[in-house]
Amino acid sequence: MRAERMAVNGMASQAAVEWPFALIEMPGDLESVRAGLARAMRSAPLARLGPEDRGRAEILLAEVLNNIAEHACCGSGAGIRLLLRLEPARLCLVVEDDGVAMPSGALPAGELPDAASLPEGGFGWFLIRSLAREISYLRDGKTNRLGIVMDCEQ
């Protein structure tokens, strides 16, 4: 836990010099995620994006944060830390939580549900995988850490 904090802070001081950076912390429940996402959308990295990229980033972030709230934190009181950094032509995200690990330690395949069967769920990871260029997942002690890169036009 302490090591991760230091890693986060180190990343902040390095990146702030050249690229817009934001660290947003929120409790891991759906109402708090809604408020945290609103703060993220106002933060320097996302405020600089054009409308198209902002829309894509908002969908991507909503799906990632909602999934963490529902499946990792799930009422345990575990919080979520979101790091945003805008680099040339790409948005880099690190999302950490201290909730339960991803089942089998791997990311869901995120296959597109068949529209004709009128699915009411199962779209989340499909959307994440559609919008992200790179996704990595690491279980580090008691922490889940997702690294996500989204291409943007800026």
């Binding site: 409308p51 198209e52 829309g55 894509r56 969908i59 529209a115 499909f126 959307l127 559609s130």
Partner: peptide, 16 residues
Amino acid sequence: TPTVEKVFRLTRMDSV
């Protein structure tokens, strides 16, 4: 609106 339309289009739910 544009972002809502994008979610329908990406998931192909605009077809139903």
